[in-house]
């Protein structure tokens, strides 16, 4: 039997604030198989980002367990089991694009002889070949985000965690990046955990869609997508696509009525 990439069991996390405790996660249980593309969707405050951060050991749960490749999140972090793409590109401004993409290789102790090869390969993957020697400020927001994805792909981690990576980009750029991301996912066979609050984005990209609701942050619906792995952008006009989108929307709406 294949080992699950990420298993969460009754995960709870509450933050203490001045105005009392906030339940960011309440009894969240989820299983993600290797090679899956799982989207977490929900309004602000539903805990989708918090979940990703718990998986990445950037946040510690109050109760419940998470296993990443069979390890605790912190062990997985130390084993460098995942690459994380943040909401903002977060490129270091004093490093060129190539040097930014190289950063994890330097930190993780990859051999110098490998650097150029790996950087070249992932920059090609995100279509930034010609921009290796530019500084981040010379690139558009979409290009910066692509560079940050390349940075997360440059080392050998089986899991890619993405926290609203395209949230700040306009729709046209976002469409193109979605297509590109699907291609990268297919080429690299990574397991992807993807946080978004765009319904079309979630439905277009995912093999599994997790609908979440706020206060307390919990899962209200898990949808296994029936869409085929080959997904041209036009698939968004197909009846299957629209049906899934409706189910997601319904899940999102129900919690507002409660």
């Amino acid at each position: 039997m294949k080992q699950a990439a990420i298993v969460a069991n009754n995960l709870c996390l509450s933050f203490e604030t001045n105005t009392g405790n906030i339940d960011a996660l309440s009894n969240v249980s989820l299983e993600i198989e290797p090679g899956e593309f799982v989207s977490l969707i929900g309004p602000s405050g539903c805990g989708k980002t918090t979940f990703l951060r718990v998986v990445a050991a950037l946040e510690a749960p109050t109760s419940g367990t998470v296993a990443v490749n069979g390890m605790s999140p912190d062990e997985a972090r130390k084993a460098r089991a995942y690459g994380y793409v943040f909401q903002a590109a977060g490129l270091y401004p004093w490093r060129t694009i190539a040097a930014n993409v190289r950063l994890p290789l330097e930190v993780m102790g990859y051999r110098k002889s490998e650097w150029a090869n790996r950087v070249g390969r992932v920059l090609e993957l995100v279509d930034l070949q010609g921009f290796a020697d530019r500084f981040p400020w010379q690139l558009s927001g979409g290009m910066q985000q692509r560079a940050s994805i390349a940075r997360a792909l440059s080392f050998d981690a089986g899991i890619l965690l993405m926290d609203e990576p395209f949230g700040a980009l306009d729709e046209i750029v976002r469409d193109r990046l979605n297509e590109q991301l699907l291609r990268i996912w297919k080429n690299t066979e990574k397991t992807i955990g993807f946080v978004t609050h765009s319904i079309p984005e979630a439905v277009y990209l995912s093999t599994k869609i997790v609908v979440m609701s706020p206060r307390p942050g919990r899962i209200v619906d898990i949808i296994e997508s029936p869409l085929p792995p080959e997904r041209p952008l036009e698939i968004r006009d197909s009846p299957e696509f629209i049906a899934i989108a409706q189910r997601v929307r319904k899940g999102l709406r129900e919690m507002h009525i409660e």
Binding site: A56, A57, L58, R77, K78, R80, Y82, G83, Y84, F86, A88, G90, Y92, L103, P104, V107, M108
Partner: peptide, 14 residues
């Protein structure tokens, strides 16, 4: 360095 830049290093187990 902002929290994001530090978190990034943390995900690399730097």
């Amino acid at each position: 360095p902002d929290p994001l830049q530090l978190d990034l290093m943390k995900t690399y187990n730097a």
